[in-house]
Each structure stands twice: as structure tokens, then as C-alpha cells.
Amino acid sequence: MLHIKCPHCGLRSQNEFSYGGDATIKRPELNKEISDKDWDNFVYLRKSPRGKHLELWQHISGCRQWIKVERDTLTHEILKTLKANEEI
């Protein structure tokens, strides 16, 4: 079970969090033209990297904040955690 350092609450066990996918995906702006391909990429396409991965987690059983977690998918090492508004 991972040990995730919530930037708001501190180190907590994984079972307090829920996973939210790739944190590098940016939602296209509202009311802007976007091609079918770009939209499909945004909705469906995700990389499955071996190694460093910046991902979203929500501290659902804690502060309910969405946070960013830089995790190594191979070793499960957590390299960094950030608040939602922080950039790596």
C-alpha cells in the first residue's frame, strides 16, 4: 500500500485516496474549436509510461483536495507531491 504525502495533510495511506489519472492532460478551453482528433486524444488517449508519471489523486477520505503525485510506475517510488495549483 502506497504512502502518499498529501501536501495539505501529510503522509497518509493509499486507502484514503482515489486515483485520478494523468495529471499532465489539460482540458481544452471551453467554446474553442477543436478537431475531432485532438478532442479524442484528450478524452481517450493516455500514455502508460514505465518510470516517472505525474498523476492526480484525490484525498477523498481526508481534505478532499485533488493533488498531483509524481510516481515511478516501475518502483512505486513517490518522488514528489504537489497541490493542485502547483507545477512540477
Partner: peptide
């Protein structure tokens, strides 16, 4: 609730 929080915290802060 998680869905709303997602958009408020990450997409349209």
C-alpha cells in the same frame, strides 16, 4: 461531488 471538486480545483480554479 468528486467530479465537481475536480473541475473547481483543477480545471477552472
Amino acid at each position: 461531488l468528486s467530479h465537481l471538486e475536480y473541475y473547481l480545483q483543477l480545471v477552472w480554479p
